[in-house]
Design a binder for these strands. Structure first.
Lengths: 131, 131
DNA sequence: TATACATTCTGTAGTAGCTACAGGAACAAG
DNA sequence: CTTGTTCCTGTAGCTACTACAGAATGTATA
């Protein structure tokens, strides 16, 4: 039993974003108080946390919607969820390896550029010639 | 000496995106042939590769613009580039650690969900309860 | 040369996923 | 009862593209 403002503070998600999620169908239509204001409960906190983590980690809203839909029907086969996860896993691994390369370059750059000039920086070369 | 179409095929960047980069000021205004069409050379291929890699790795266009500007003035101090890189490095490390956690969860999920039901999947819990 | 098809041009509008208002209604505190 | 906060809907803006429309060229073939 809480207002959208409280849910927002609790979750760190902007009020506008919460309303947007409802509009986009990733959060269910909120129950309304007699005065028309949205009312939330603990379950919504969880759902919102789920959405945020999934988003931060690269799931698109359509995938989030799909995962949440699966969650509501636990008697179904896991095949769909598993496929979603496999696709996501491949994307995650690709990102990880590219980010690892970039991290090394950035570290080297920060070290090398302490007092140097741009001409000594390798980060631009590194980004141009990555394969 | 090549057309926008050739540059597009060579770089794998859509023609519209190349024009957008020009409009957005990350690519310089292209030289024009007498008939008004854009003409590119080898240098543009490099610049485009640079932009794509930087974008894929999470640099925003404003950062890309800043890095490219630095590249044009190699006599300047590297301080600005170094600061850009440090900020980027922090973001990269945060992403790396969260992606590593997610990868483990996704792997576990794919393994566990082979023939199970959704009720046996932990990925939803995992995403809800990450801290 | 005529016709057909491809390429490019500008400009505008659409996309995802938010974020930021404006204008109005309702509520809570002093 | 006034002031300030919260909430409502609706619309517009943002980034980084992507996809048209309609017109003007360019190239290839009959």
């Amino acid at each position: 039993m809480m207002s959208i403002g409280t849910l927002s503070k609790q979750s760190g998600v902007h009020i506008e974003t919460i309303r947007y999620y409802e509009r986009a169908g990733v959060l269910p239509k909120a129950r309304r108080a007699p005065n028309g204001r949205r009312v939330y409960d603990h379950e919504d906190t969880g759902r919102l946390a789920f959405i945020r983590h999934a988003r931060e980690l690269g799931f698109e809203l359509v995938s989030v919607r799909a995962l949440l839909a699966l969650q509501e029907r636990p008697e179904l086969s896991c095949k769909a969820a598993s496929e979603l996860a496999s696709a996501q896993l491949a994307a995650v691994e690709s990102r990880l390896s590219r980010l690892t390369v970039l991290r090394a370059e950035l570290k080297r750059m920060v070290r090398a550029c302490k007092n140097g000039r741009v001409v000594d920086c390798r980060v631009i070369d590194a980004l141009t010639n990555m394969r």
